[in-house]
């Protein structure tokens, strides 16, 4: 009784300038589910996000996206040209022309940026801009939310709030979420499925299972991984009988035990 995937990538490979950026990567995002990509720098996380969005075509493999789907996207960073006069209100309207002023205010309020509506985008701090971009993506009422490090530049207290908000959005609206994160602690607590990427999918599945996977441990180190185990138990009630964890074609290490 699994809902059809909003976006599914099967065996995608991508070579750029003679370098293999992605190799046989598979993942699927279903409605209401949060899939988080973790991995070291240069692992191809942002590239994979662009493949999922249809901005980059893989050299081989298949990408299927639900037809006519509204997507909300928060890129890793946004450098708005300082010569461009642009109010936050206009910036929000561009993404969601039909959203009313009160809706805009409510969306900003929810991401903790209620005070910036009248400001110019170039005057925002990094953390404020990140919050505004999230509000903007949510205002589109997306079926799929794609977030490339959504809390970059956001203060610690704000990060947890934002992850809570994303989780709440997925649960209540049934939005599928594909997210890249460096913040392993919070990822483990606020996600249904983790895809550990290092050009290929090292392992994928329930956060707790992934955090014990030998390839994951090799990538992030046992110390980091152990500190995470404390957090994961909080969340394991979210992973019900469903147990679908992204297929088996990506190959698992011998210690991998996360298949349901």
């Amino acid at each position: 009784m699994t809902a059809p995937a909003l976006v599914s990538i099967e065996g995608a490979s991508l070579v750029r300038g003679g370098q293999t950026v992605l190799s046989g990567v598979s993942l699927a995002v279903r409605p209401g589910r949060i899939v988080t990509i973790v991995g070291p720098n240069g692992a191809g996380k942002s590239t994979l996000v662009k493949v999922a969005l249809g901005l980059l075509a893989p050299d081989s493999g298949k990408v299927t996206r639900a037809e006519g789907m509204v997507v909300g996207y928060v890129p890793q960073s946004l450098n708005v040209e300082p010569t461009l006069p642009l109010s936050v209100r206009r910036f929000l309207s561009m993404a969601a022309p039909r959203a009313s002023r009160p809706e805009q205010e409510a969306a900003l309020e929810r991401v903790g940026a209620g005070h910036v509506l009248g400001r110019q985008v170039v005057q925002l701090s990094g953390g404020e801009l990140q919050r505004v971009m999230l509000a903007r993506a949510v205002l589109r009422r997306p079926r799929l939310l794609v977030l490339d490090e959504p809390v970059g530049g956001v203060d610690m207290a704000g990060q947890a709030e934002i992850y809570d908000l994303i989780a709440d959005f997925a649960r209540t609206q049934g939005t599928g979420v594909l997210m890249v994160s460096h913040d392993l602690h919070v990822v483990m607590a606020a996600t249904d499925e983790v895809v550990c990427l290092n050009r290929h999918v090292c392992c994928a599945g329930h956060p707790e299972a992934v955090s014990r996977h030998p390839e994951y441990l090799a990538l992030f180190g046992a110390r980091v991984a152990n500190s995470l185990a404390v957090y994961t138990h909080v969340h394991d009630h979210q992973h019900l009988a469903d147990g679908s964890v992204g297929g088996t074609e990506h190959g698992h290490g011998p210690g991998c035990s996360h298949h349901g």
């Binding site: 662009k50 969005l53 249809g54 901005l55 997507v71 996207y73 890129p75 946004l78 708005v80 040209e81 461009l84 642009l86 910036f91 561009m94 993404a95 589109r140 794609v146």
Partner: peptide, 14 residues
């Protein structure tokens, strides 16, 4: 044009 001036990827997604 205003959209791609802000960010080309974002404009394409939208």
């Amino acid at each position: 044009l205003v959209a791609i001036t802000i960010d080309e990827d974002l404009a394409a997604v939208e």
